[in-house]
Design a protein around this nucleic acid. Sequence first.
DNA 1: GCCAACGTTGGC
DNA 2: GCCAACGTTGGC
Length: 155
Amino acid sequence: MPGYWLLKTEPGCFSIDDLAAAPSQTTFWDGVRNYQARNLMREMRVGDKVLFHHSVIDPAVVGLAEVVREAYPDHTAWDPEEKHYDPASTPDKPRWDMVDIRFTEKFLQPLPLPFLRTVKELAGMELLRKGSRLSVQPVTEAQFQVIVRLAKQEG
DNA sequence: GCCAACGTTGGC
DNA sequence: GCCAACGTTGGC
């Protein structure tokens, strides 16, 4: 049985359109510099389903992706040129991980955060919790199915 | 642009 | 180990 997750990204940085346009519609999910988020990524398995969420600009769940490679060292942490460079992480002792995800689909209509807050079945979802900042979040199968169903309806 | 809610850092 | 200061995230 696959696991379910939600990944946040600022679309100005990397959007679902960027994912759809990437080679093989696949990308490595680099730049996570939070231990809780990293530890959750380490629990991801190939085949797990991912809700793709845009934050900051029109926050919304905008589509689906799938885990295609499990956690491995995030090499961008070693590169001083990178925005998320972390001198404490080295190739010998990597501190941060990333996974690979592949595009599944882009919803015809995004599901805006304010709308999701009105959905009773989603009460208690981490994304909707006040002050929620975690960029990698576990999602229940029920929550995932509700989101997918709403996306079909909205579309 | 504001600010609440965090997570991290560093002095002690 | 405590906790104040600081930096960041991200909704609004």
